[in-house]
Amino acid sequence: MRIPCPFCGVRDLTEFTYLGDASLAQRPDPASPDAAARFHEYVHLRDNPAGLHDELWYHGGGCRSWLTVTRNTRTHVIEGAKLTRTSKSWTATS
């Protein structure tokens, strides 16, 4: 499997480390009154879809970026990958 890193280009699986469902980037509000229940869901419960799956990969063998990759868990076909942090932040060369 090869993953299209938005920074480095298409790279071999060996350069990446998998974390899991992309929802792990959406940490619950620790101050909410039901924080215990929400953290339990966040840490433990998964949709685990058979099909398209947004998931977090770390390009530790490359640019050290965390990526959000959309991949089909039935076929392993990767639909796309983006930097996990782009949604909330700036880029350095623009």
Binding site: T17, L19, L24, L56, W66, L83, T84, R85, S89
Partner: peptide, 12 residues
């Protein structure tokens, strides 16, 4: 890796 996750994914 954990610190990069906390920064890039949780608190960019």
């Amino acid at each position: 890796q954990h610190l990069e996750f906390c920064h890039q994914a949780l608190w960019p």
